[in-house]
Nucleic acid binder design. Structure first.
Lengths: 316, 316
DNA sequence: ATGAAAGCGCTAACAA
DNA sequence: TTGTTAGCGCTTTCAT
């Protein structure tokens, strides 16, 4: 494989001239530029990206830290990031953690060893205290709101969204409302959901709250539990449309009518929700991913709020 | 940021010794090893990955070329690749093409400029003739069968699978069978579907074949068209469970009973299919992704067949 | 077991 | 406008 010296020699110029042609510098005579370009084409020369990364100290590569990649919500954010990466001519690395703290730190380490220019944290296992030391090495953008001024973020006002959702259910006449979340108390999103519930309905009855729901199957089982209660809820707020789909399926198989017997409210406006005509709170996660990517590229520390919306359908 | 020289100086050894410690070489006295390790820890030194990539000529990074990333089928393969990447301590870059030939070639170029050790092609826009020249620069693994001996692949016997599917429908008593595909005639998978159809049912009536179906909405519209026919099909074979879900939704809204009025057969065993109790042909795409990744890492040119299965549910 | 030194392939400051 | 040259940070002979 030829290197820049070979090209220079063959074209009868110096390596700097080749470099200038490669990087579209002005101050290169048309004559030499053509000569160099001819050799580059002829030998189909490709400048070594590691050498460039080494010297420039940047790789034009952004990492997306996500707990799971086959998850509707995270895939939407990844999708947003990929959209922008194409337009800005960056590459993206997918960094799945399964909420493993060490794995997450390993990924952050890739900023330090100059492999990544920045990372987008769609959801994290570590506390900010563990993460903050890495801001010195590259952009760290969160997909949640954080006070830390050194962390840029593209976020949703989740608390407001949850309050709105519960309020919406209440206005539809529901008093006995249950809900599910992905993670447990360690997750801020779970805490916010609970706080919003308390704001609207008061204390959360233990039996009306189920965590660790990720999939269709989890939703099915959650509904089984919830709807088997003697004082079963008249509405369920699911943490995602797939989970909501599982609930729908259980309810249907149990002979319950939706929304008369039980109302179901999902999240993220997924195809399965459209399929089942499920009412859903759309947090516009693709937009979150796009914004986060832009912030990462610009090494910005801005805090950008992304608006949500409730999509009304027949399940509530 | 300290480099290997700083570490060497501080530890009172040469750079080669530091390098040896970094790479776990034997023949380093326990004494020096400890001294070096102490400095590395103290300064939390991170060796520059670009320098290593430059010198070693490999990056432990594999790219996954995929037309769309928010697509059930491709996401499954990506998921498989990520599974293995974690275990083998590799990174993966997502390379979305939208079936743009130039973009695809740009990604292949990343092998040449030493950014990627290998790529997995989940689906391609270019002919093999365009792609083959790049095998010289890194592993190229396809997720489809190809004759070319220089291309390793993890593939499904799609033709057999399609024949089996149509046969299954036929055995259930269906004669008027329609089907959808993602891409048009340019796609081998479409061609194989058609060939399989002809094998089982004879010539394909134009009105029973609809291409460019990717999403739930596409499925909905396809069903609208198909079921509006005066001689409407009694069964539809959809190219994916989301598409099948859209068909289900249309059929339901049109007051048709499944499978009595129309049977629906999907693909890839997705949550939406489980939700709607849709019969589905599972091509085990996660396994395909896993296998492809292993082949890429091993720079293997093996051809590995992944078995499929029909999951029987109430929609047929 | 350890170190000196020659690169890996490129960019950019400096000189001309 | 062009060339010379000194690195970027690391690995790896080759001596010792």
């Amino acid at each position: 494989m030829p290197n820049i010296h070979d090209i220079a020699k063959k074209a009868g110029v110096s390596v700097s001239t080749v470099s200038r042609v490669l990087n579209n510098y002005k101050y290169v005579s048309e004559e030499k530029r053509k000569a160099v370009q001819r050799v580059i084409d002829e030998w189909s020369f490709a400048p070594n990206r590691n050498a460039i990364g080494l010297i420039r100290g940047e790789t034009r590569m952004i990492g997306v830290i996500m707990p799971y990649n086959n998850n509707q919500a995270f895939d939407q954010m990844l999708h947003g990031a990929l959209n922008r990466s194409r337009e800005l001519d960056y590459s993206v690395a997918v960094l799945p953690t399964k909420y493993d703290k060490n794995k997450e730190l390993e990924y952050l380490y890739m900023l330090k060893n100059k492999w990544l220019d920045g990372v987008i944290i769609t959801s994290r296992a570590n506390d900010w205290e563990q993460i903050l030391p890495y801001v010195e090495y590259g952009a760290i953008i969160a997909c949640e709101f954080t006070e830390h001024p050194e962390i840029g973020c593209a976020y949703i006002d989740r608390y407001a969204s949850y309050v709105d959702s519960f309020q919406f259910l209440k206005e539809k006449g529901h008093q006995a409302v249950a809900f599910t979340t992905a993670r447990g108390w360690e997750s801020k999103s779970t805490q916010q959901t609970i706080a919003a519930y308390e704001n609207v309905f008061g204390a959360v009855p233990d039996r009306y709250f189920i965590s660790d729901c990720y999939s269709f199957e989890d939703g099915y089982r959650a509904a089984e539990k919830l709807l088997g209660l003697s004082d079963r809820p008249t509405a369920i707020y699911a943490n995602g449309d797939e989970v909501a789909g599982g609930m729908y399926r259980y309810a249907a198989s149990a002979g319950l009518t939706i929304p008369q017997d039980v109302a179901i409210l999902g999240q993220e406006n997924q195809p399965i929700g459209v399929a089942l005509d499920l009412c859903s709170v759309d947090h516009r996660l693709v937009q979150v991913g796009e914004q986060a990517f832009d912030l990462a590229v610009r090494r910005s520390r801005d805090k950008v709020n992304i608006p949500y919306r409730i999509i009304k359908r027949s399940s509530v």
